[in-house]
Nucleic acid binder design. Sequence first.
DNA 1: TTGTAAGCGTTATCAC
DNA 2: GTGATAACGCTTACAA
Lengths: 348, 348
Amino acid sequence: MKTPKKTVKLSDVARLARVSTATVSRAISLPRKVKPLTLARVQEAVRSLGYVALGAARALASRRTHTIGAVIPTLDNAIFANTTHALQKTLDEAGYTLLLACHEFDAEVEVRVTRALIERGVDGLVLLGTSHDPQLYAMMSGRQIPYVLTWALDESGKHPCVGFNNRAAALQVANHLLGFGHREFAMISGVTANNERARDRLRGVRDALAVRGIKLKPDRVIEKPYSLASGREGLRALMLSAEPPTAVMCGNDVLAIGAIAECNTLGIRVPQQVSITGFDDMEIASLLSPGLTTVHFPTAELGQLAATHLLSRLAGKQVAWQHELPVELKVRGTTALPARTRLRRAQR
Amino acid sequence: MKTPKKTVKLSDVARLARVSTATVSRAISLPRKVKPLTLARVQEAVRSLGYVALGAARALASRRTHTIGAVIPTLDNAIFANTTHALQKTLDEAGYTLLLACHEFDAEVEVRVTRALIERGVDGLVLLGTSHDPQLYAMMSGRQIPYVLTWALDESGKHPCVGFNNRAAALQVANHLLGFGHREFAMISGVTANNERARDRLRGVRDALAVRGIKLKPDRVIEKPYSLASGREGLRALMLSAEPPTAVMCGNDVLAIGAIAECNTLGIRVPQQVSITGFDDMEIASLLSPGLTTVHFPTAELGQLAATHLLSRLAGKQVAWQHELPVELKVRGTTALPARTRLRRAQR
DNA sequence: TTGTAAGCGTTATCAC
DNA sequence: GTGATAACGCTTACAA
């Protein structure tokens, strides 16, 4: 058949079902508002014509797209992919679709892609982190778009958020290591610019050490993008320096794995010669480095909660403005003080 | 200010710039079609009013949403997250936005979410794999939506696709192992229902062995969902059986890592007692299992190519209907025959 | 319960 | 180059 068939529209269904377009519209979106008999007629017409509503027209008339936008740093990091997956799943179950954008840790890109999402007409937005260009907030409030910040907690109290206390998580790790007698610390941190998660983790470490009168010397803090290579390079620089640390804390699991891999390459034994710890803790990473102590973040729950938060607000319900999810320190194996250090201390 | 300010629209800009709405529209989408002077006036008006176009109205009038939908199994698997990331990035650079949906390896869900994407008005669709419900194709052709299948190659030749030859990849691994003298094979496969990637990998293994007159016995093929736990369970069942294999091929890298982890648990040495190989090969997995031989799939290139394929067609350009991306066997360490087997053979 | 009809904010086809 | 103005397909008061 070489029928030029134009796309079937609402009025076609209406004609076939012998009702008005209004009735068809109701039959589709508010089925309980039409008499069962006519409902059946409409549904039959829809089916036989293979009618599919045109989102654009629907959105224009109803001012709703049933679409939620998410702006995340990257999908290359499994941790964000995880959260995004849970987000998508929860939205789907509620009849919403996810519009996704990544900014690769670039603030300008973030503004641009967020604008694009807003132009596409998202009903709500999920942003990752709390540090954002003021323009972002201006755009969202200009269009009255509900949003929720995730992964971190907004200390200003101005923005709705559901996230983790990254600083507290860092305190936990540092205190754990302090408890084992470590005094020589180093940190391989993620890039802290525009990234309060990385900043808070570094801050938490500093604060915990400060209580014991310990300072993180500048050359003991290495700041690099999240990648295996960064972890390797960071560790190499630290351990080949004049005074290598006994404990290296890594900004996330990828950096930690990289650091461990480099230890293997250099012949440095973990944890006998140096303790490596990290954050974020994806199953695969911790499984493969059985001795790695990390802080586990419930990322799937985060995605789900972010979704329900927005959906609730869109439905006009009240929701908690700020929501903190608990994290968990996972101690695997030992993070004992290296032998050489124990020896040195005993000699004093 | 408690201005009730309604959203600024095109006509507001037109009034301020003292031109018609038509001119504003042109100034925005075809700047070169308007006189520089008026263009400047319009742009100034847009800026001062903070005007942002309404996607729904634009889409309704132009029949274009500048949106591409992607339907993938899951983001929990890093391999798909990777492809999706590249896809999103390439689309973004071309001014398109990604609408994302996951089906969790469930064919019914796939139909449902794809329909949702089509209703939202995607300009094109990226599907993963070649096995899909006929309804899917009907829906897409009904709306005349261009689409591209990815990851696998469509043998029927009916559908545009850009993907890998999974069967050939499996042939490579199997032949590699055969070359080392292995004869006792097993496979821990992903679920093959609605998944031609998993099927093709299994088929490739079977075909390679058949050439040497070797059959994969039913109890040597274990089919499980992709997960670390599956890899563990699969390996345990195989190695604790009466006749353990000398080579276990895993359907993807996650299964392979799980299998290796279980070997560690059971005290089985790799590759001295059993060779583990896999597919998909994410950097982190192979780094952590340095001896793991796998087939590497260029997944980021795949995402990028899928995007450009679609974008080209939307721009009316000709493109290759079927596009195969080369994969690469990554041999790390050795996959030698286990000592006990070498011994047994020598004794004959 | 159903029908009528007025928008929703852009784009595109014409004239000018 | 620019300006009227008619679509675009659906939702939603308001009426009946």
